[in-house]
Nucleic acid binder design. Structure first.
Lengths: 246, 246
DNA sequence: CGCCTAATTGACAAATTTCAATGGTGGTGG
DNA sequence: CCACCACCATTGAAATTTGTCAATTAGGCG
């Protein structure tokens, strides 16, 4: 997706001794000096096919990354949260569009300068590579989800991912924010808005979740949710600590 | 998928101007000196979770790359053909398994040495990056396919991709080889074996394709096939803009 | 507070899966 | 070389899931 996730990953790729550092030590730091921009909810950052002149780092807010096909069908390939990067491809043109789900602040970086910085810095390269690999792993998980999971499994996977993200900043929370619309969720999970809605209703009825307005939701049975997500073995992000009670 | 596609080759084999080259000029050349291996159809090259000690380059034959989830369901995330690379992640362990579809010859490369070679060569880095980007684009196309295409569109997409691959070596052929089983195809397209079979029958009945045994198939109406694939506009627009290197 | 749009709910339709049986291919051994 | 066997593929019918269309409800923003 070239929508690069900023998760964990430490430098296991390059094993040089650390000398004097002429360039910023992290990719995030590259963006620190850049002028920030801001767009309102619903506004397009760029469209599929646009000339890819810049990379963007989300500072605050949420973006949706999407593709459109022939008859207007839309596929959301991912949501981008603060810390995520988008546009690190070497293609001339963006392979997807990006729109603000909520008001979003971001920083921009020229593609050419970015590539130069990456090429010149043996410290930044493995960071970029790690992000690409994480992003590829996420794409694979999405392929698994879309290939053979039921509507319920898809939604539970999504909600569980959201929960994990929330807990990165608030380790004991059980409330997740859903800034996107049901249509966004549907287009992300390869379902319709009605199926998403019905599945939420069903999970609520079983006491697994409880809605808190349209854009938030409380997880009541974390371990049940995790089990229903069906990732089972392959989910190495799985933290037993995430699961409180049954 | 870390299963890196070798589409756009950079022909530096014939540019003998450069004298002393410390590292091979292409990723393919890296593997040239490696000892080749061979496995029979059905044999496992490595499994998901195995320690990722090596990268592999397919020399001859076809591999399937797959993941398994809880109750045994299998997802094939890609097929690998000669020239493709697999295992270029920086994760310690493989995120998927790889098995031979047909008897497959391959070359192996130590992960550490590979990473070192990449790090030390400003020529190899953009090649690897380009492959990763191509692979990411392929993953995205697969996500689009699985998100919102019908069985017929999925199969036509797959067959059209196969046709394009065949024509890379035989530009005017209209026969495609399908070394994998129907189950492989089904697991790749997120369908059942029966649906794949029925869809093939339907396309045959409409005179769009004609089977030639189980493992080959003639495309009779290429443009119809392309239209039914439903990729529409987003297809043939790639010209690789390689990363500037210092 | 009220409106507008998003979300939910219901009834029905369509696509795909599932289950079951038949048919065909290719490989093996006689 | 042929026949048989096992496995893969095809076909059919029924079941299930999800999508579609059409109301109704309710959140959230002005």
């Amino acid at each position: 997706m070239y929508a690069i996730n900023s998760k964990q990953q430490i430098d296991r790729f390059h094993t040089d001794a650390v000398a004097a550092r002429p360039s910023p030590p992290t990719i995030e730091a590259l963006f620190d000096r850049q002028v920030p921009g801001e767009i309102e909810a619903g506004v397009t950052l760029f469209l599929e096919g646009d000339r890819a002149t810049h990379l963007y780092e989300v500072v605050e807010g949420v973006l949706r990354v999407f593709k459109r096909i022939t008859d207007g069908r839309r596929v959301i390939t991912g949501f981008l949260y603060p810390g995520d990067l988008v546009g690190a491809s070497l293609k001339d043109r963006h392979l997807f569009g990006a729109e603000a789900v909520t008001r979003t602040r971001f920083r921009r970086f020229g593609r050419r300068e970015f590539q130069e910085a990456i090429n010149n810095s043996p410290e930044l390269r493995p960071q970029l590579f790690a992000r690409l690999c994480d992003e590829m792993a996420a794409a694979q998980n999405q392929i698994v989800l879309l290939s053979c999971k039921t509507a319920e499994e898809r939604l539970c996977s999504f909600l569980f991912d959201c929960l994990k993200r929330e807990r990165q900043t608030m380790p004991s929370t059980s409330v997740i924010q859903l800034p996107m619309t049901r249509l966004d969720i549907a287009d992300y999970l390869g379902l319709t808005i009605e199926t998403v809605s019905r599945t939420i209703t069903k999970l609520t009825g079983r006491g697994i979740i409880a809605t808190e307005g349209r854009h938030a939701l409380r997880i009541l049975k974390t371990s049940t949710l995790a089990r229903l997500a069906g990732d089972g073995c392959d989910d190495e992000d799985y933290l037993p600590a995430l699961i409180q009670r049954n």
